[in-house]
Design a protein around this nucleic acid. Sequence first.
DNA 1: AAACGCCGCAACCGCCGAGGT
DNA 2: AACCTCGGCGGTTGCGGCGTT
Length: 343
Amino acid sequence: MGRAPCCDKNGIKKGPWTPEEDHKLMTYIQLHGPSNWRTLPKNAGLQRCGKSCRLRWTNYLRPDIKRGRFSFEEEETIIQLHSIMGNKWSAIAARLPGRTDNEIKNYWNTHIRKRLLRNGIDPVTHAPRLDLLDLSSILGSALCSPPLFNLSSLLGTQAILNPEMLRLATTLSSLKQENQEIFLQHLQDNQLLSSLVQNEVSLSQANQFQNPVQEPTSSPFLCPTQLMQTDVEGLSCQNSLQNLVPSSWNDCLVSKAPNFVSCNTNPTVPDKLAENSGFQPINNSCQNYSIESVLSTPLSSPAPLNSSSTFVNSSSTEDERESYCSSLFKFEIPEILDMNDFL
DNA sequence: AAACGCCGCAACCGCCGAGGT
DNA sequence: AACCTCGGCGGTTGCGGCGTT
């Protein structure tokens, strides 16, 4: 257990702040500055704990706090930063002048998160949800690299994953390791899926080929996810693929299944699903998005972080925002896959 | 008009890391 | 090294407002 709460003493008031308390706190801080929070309430004549005073000041009374509705740019920035940082609200708030971490956190949980969920986007991974998306995510991982294609992790997600999809993914992974070239050829010929379904290749048969620890470590090929994990200097996913992945992989990963392109620019988000899926939304951030451009923004800069946005109307409606969110995370089902059997 | 449920947000709680002793 | 204090963070709670029935 941690140490005892600082507010459990008798005489320490909790709950909503009154205008009188606010006035006392503001007056004291204006005179003395926010120095020692523990002694501040006593000196200011407040029946509050220092922690409560600090929160009240930082989240509400601070003069530089911006009130009111979040603008489109702010919302867009939050989404982008969240895709990079995860729930690091203070870090996100540091790049949104006038906004507090608490405010951003609340806004995320009450607005953005729900909107992403409505649009089929996992608000944690910023990827299409596994229970809604197609098989391409799994196939993409299977094609990429066995070390990243961790079936045991996938099995942990079976509650949300169609068992048939999981089974097929396992089979594909095994076959791929058995003979990568034949596998790719089959896939490129759009024959593998129907072949598998028709012949009902059993999981046990497939597993005899599976050997996840013997994959050559000196493979000259990098999975797109790996590319992006190391490609954090602002290079586009597309370029990375074209430059580093053999053309046959490009054909398979990009041309036939465009959303195989991995844009995982988030090395800090420990999301197994995202890693395993290798599936990220196709959006501006994939093609042009530079982490540097966001992270290098001065903390005090009031300028929007994504100047490329054409959505500058801060009074836009919820529907417009939702529509924008949808387009931001738009994805398509590859033509080579008939998902009807899996949904 | 009243009851009910939902939603948003301010505030609280528990935990952690840094720094001091 | 061990302990304590403090500031800070992220997750959660609970209340008030609002819309719906």
